[in-house]
Design a protein around this nucleic acid. Structure first.
Lengths: 207, 207
DNA sequence: TGTACATCAGTGAACGCGCGTTCACTGATGTAC
DNA sequence: TGTACATCAGTGAACGCGCGTTCACTGATGTAC
């Protein structure tokens, strides 16, 4: 291994390496588009550190991977929140969220795969419920649909949670199929998103 | 390894083992619900044969796994075809197919995962396009939607392929989310399927 | 009817692989007296 | 101002693991003459 120019962190700042590790792992994930390629050794190499150092900052590999993805999803959350705050029309806000979500998923396939397409048993306990129901993208979607309902624009006979789950299934379905089956003769992403948003809104919302 | 009671196949019938291997692999997959647990060694053990024997019948592990899943999906195809033939109402036929597809996916999570949630690079070449666009469940769905269109019951402005992709995204989304996030507070499967079918049909079909 | 031979289903032993992880350690830095 | 010490970020070497896969082989069975 080539000796790295990296110098050791001073006393109180051991956490500096933590962020470098997250950055390196994220970069590897983006470059290789393969969770397997992001081994503890590869991450350590890229940071310029030996593998055991990783364990000073993350308890094991799955946790590291989820922290990486979690950080990326936090950025999505910020974006979704911005969309909701920016739109005065509640239905338009839901559409904007849906669009942003689908674009994000297709643009970050391996991240999306880890967060939403993985095996339950490969998911560290701390990420099993939390990330999902309460926190993050899903909660935002519930809020956005609730706003539509509060404005009286949800189609009669459909409840907020039903509508939210249906929307989630649709956006997730589009994203995950495109990720798993890249060789399928898909239409343009824009075209598919437009169709899907149009039909879904017509089905769920009024006005 | 306990010596097995299995006796060697006579001359022309080497293919007998092939089916036994498929059966054993399928049984293991169903029991463990884990692709990783279905190792070449585990399959060989269960059949009562040594690992190298597997390679006389399947070129490698991914191919074996896909053959196993393919066989299960063939059964789904038969079921879907039966639904379509049994329903005189075209829309009812699409609904029946969608329901059967979702039930199948949720009932065979690991099979579904391998076929529709895997990495493109883990998919043997022979299964990359074929299983999808031309053959099997998707083609059946296209046919069913085409029948609705032929009956003049597709909502104006929506094309057959658009409607099919949307339906596919929805059913796949429901199935794959329930598989990946079993800890999520889902509604009953029946309830979720009913809502989804109701809303989708209202959105896409007329009468 | 008997013998030599080809076939081929299945074996036994081993290969290399890269992985996640653990362990006892080093050595620079700050702190107490 | 100097010395002993505690801290703690990061190291080096190795562990065990189970996997997919390969190779040269055995030995029962059918076939040709």
């Amino acid at each position: 291994m080539v000796p790295s120019p990296r110098s050791r962190s001073p006393r109180g700042q051991g956490d500096a390496l933590r962020d470098e590790i997250l950055d390196a792992a994220e970069a590897l994930l983006v470059e290789t588009q393969s969770e397997d390629a992001v081994s503890i050794r590869a991450v350590a190499d890229r940071v310029g550190v030996t593998p055991p150092s990783i364990y000073r900052h993350f308890e094991d590999k799955p946790t590291l991977m989820f922290r990486v993805c979690d950080r990326q999803f936090d950025r999505l959350d910020v974006e979704l929140r911005a969309h909701r705050d920016a739109e005065s029309d509640q239905v338009a806000a839901v559409i904007a969220c849906g669009r942003a979500y689908m674009r994000f998923g297709v643009a970050h396939p391996e991240t999306y795969r880890i967060m939403f397409m993985g095996h339950r048993d490969d998911t560290p306990e701390q990420f099993r419920d939390e990330t999902m129901a309460e926190h993050g993208a899903f909660a935002g979607l519930v809020d956005a649909v609730q706003a539509v309902a509060d404005a009286g624009r949800l189609r009669p006979g459909i409840e907020v949670m039903q509508a939210t789950l249906l929307l989630w299934a649709c956006v997730h379905g589009l994203v995950s199929l495109r990720i798993s089956k890249p060789d399928f003769p898909w239409p343009t992403l824009d075209e598919q998103i437009d169709t899907q948003c149009g039909v879904m809104c017509a089905a769920l919302f009024t006005d």
